[in-house]
Design a protein around this nucleic acid. Structure first.
Length: 193
DNA sequence: TGCCCGATTAACT
DNA sequence: GTTAATCGGGCAA
């Protein structure tokens, strides 16, 4: 059975944590799936919410690693982040897509019954499918209702530019499972030699 | 205070 | 391809 990830797992560089999370299983109240896509946001990164210092919204990013940072996107959607790095470094990974594996019927109902490929393929979509809102901001990731399980097999990890940002858009800080059909967008093909 | 923009999505043409 | 939904943060005045 897969190893349970505890908060110590997250207390390292976002660029160490991010690729290790690809293929890990995220459950919320027993519903969820395999993480197939995420993005890293470091506090020195102009695209990060924490870049300009603490605010009421991003306060949890300035606390210890291993907690959920949930924010409202475009006034409509919720997006889930895992706080990483030593306390105060205000860095996190944005969970962008899951391959749904547990609780398919519940997720379909919450999402208005789209095809399974669209259930959790996007940061707003996966929060809707799992039932995550601002109420979960600050929740510990290694305690119920959250559960995180390390991946069991090998995974091929792809990297590329992040999605939907204008600042620091060139940084290749998006990580995903190569070839997964549950990505929010495909990764650009590697440059030809 | 007011205005613009954003780590998005679905429903349009 | 475009656009509306809708709200917190940043910055100018």
């Amino acid at each position: 059975m897969a190893r349970r990830l505890t908060r110590g797992f997250f207390g390292r560089s976002v660029h160490e944590v991010a690729p290790e999370l690809i293929g890990a299983t995220l459950l919320f109240n027993g519903v969820g799936g395999r993480i197939v896509e995420l993005e890293a946001y470091h506090h020195t990164d102009p695209a990060a919410h924490s870049y300009r210092g603490p605010t009421e919204r991003n306060a949890i990013m300035f606390g210890p690693a291993g907690y959920a940072y949930v924010y409202r996107s475009y006034g409509i959607h919720w997006c889930l982040n895992f706080v990483c790095e030593p306390k105060g470094s205000a860095s996190a990974v944005l969970i962008r897509a899951l391959e749904p594996t547990v609780g398919l019927a519940v997720m379909r109902r919450r999402r208005g019954a789209p095809g399974d490929r669209l259930l959790c393929s996007g940061p707003g979509r996966l929060c809707q499918a799992l039932g995550i809102t601002h109420r979960q901001n600050g929740f510990a990731l290694d305690e119920p209702p959250f559960e995180l399980l390390a991946r069991t097999g090998d995974v091929e990890v792809a990297t590329g530019p992040r999605i939907g940002i204008t600042k620091a858009a060139e940084l290749p800080w998006r990580y995903g499972e190569k070839g997964s059909r549950f990505l929010s967008k495909p990764f650009p093909l590697p440059a030809k030699l």
